[in-house]
């Protein structure tokens, strides 16, 4: 199986059920966006999906989890720690090898971080750190990608570019997003979550913003 499947599932956090009666199947090739208010349970759902096949997934959590004193290079390289021998990793920690250096530089250029490659990430801005976080997931080069608000701290134009990059590089993509337009533009399936249940689950070309609006009842507008 290369996709995901949840059947009659209930997801709990700290003993409390956050999501009820989940029936979700994601097939290879799908690009799925999760929409819903913050706290609706998107992150919980992404975690549950990730646990189904952790070794095939490029994982981009909302909390960047970067190592502040290490430079951008190493934070990106860390995406592949499990793919190389430990000794080789240590060598790259002390003195990056030309092959990895080339790959990572190329990726950093695509992320717009080419100039910052050897700067400790604690010296980067929030948006730049967020790009490093995304870059680390991209560098994993896995068939599936799960991202929790991967571009929310990045300006809209660059965010769109990076979403395109994500979709290009991965067969299957599941993203939690808060920007509805981005969701509609980059994904072919939208799952709306509200009050602990799936409110709707349909192809994006069949949805209008009127369908989506009820997901955000506390929105003043």
């Amino acid at each position: 199986m290369t996709g995901f499947r949840l059947q009659q599932a209930a997801l709990t956090v700290g003993g409390q059920t956050v999501l009820h009666d989940l029936d979700i199947t994601i097939r290879p090739g799908e690009r799925v966006a999760l929409l819903g208010e913050s706290g609706a349970g998107k992150t919980t759902l992404l975690r549950a999906l990730r646990e189904q096949q952790p070794n095939r997934i490029a994982w981009c959590p909302q909390q960047p989890g970067l190592v502040p004193v290490l430079p951008v290079f190493h934070n990106l390289y860390m995406g592949r720690l499990d793919q190389y021998a430990t000794a080789y990793n240590l060598l790259n920690l002390i003195r990056p090898t030309p092959a990895r250096r080339r790959e990572v530089t190329e990726l950093a250029d695509r992320l717009g971080l080419g100039d910052q490659l050897w700067k400790p990430v604690e010296q980067l801005s929030g948006g730049q750190q967020s790009r490093v976080n995304l870059g680390r997931a991209l560098y994993q080069q896995r068939p599936l990608f799960i991202g929790d608000e991967p571009v929310s701290a990045i300006d809209e134009r660059q965010g769109a570019d990076l979403l395109t990059l994500i979709c290009e590089q991965h067969e299957t993509v599941v993203l939690a997003l808060h920007n509805i337009d981005q969701a509609l533009a980059h994904c072919n399936r939208i799952i709306g979550i509200r009050a602990g249940r799936v409110a709707f689950d349909s192809p994006s070309d069949q949805l209008t913003s009127a369908d989506i609006k009820p997901l955000y009842p506390s929105d003043a507008s």
């Binding site: 952790p54 997934i57 994982w59 959590p61 909390q63 290490l70 240590l90």
Partner: peptide, 15 residues
């Protein structure tokens, strides 16, 4: 608090 997909063993230690 490490990421869910953080490396293990020596990799975790050094990186």
């Amino acid at each position: 608090v490490l990421r869910d997909d953080a490396a293990r063993g020596l990799n975790r230690y050094f990186f």
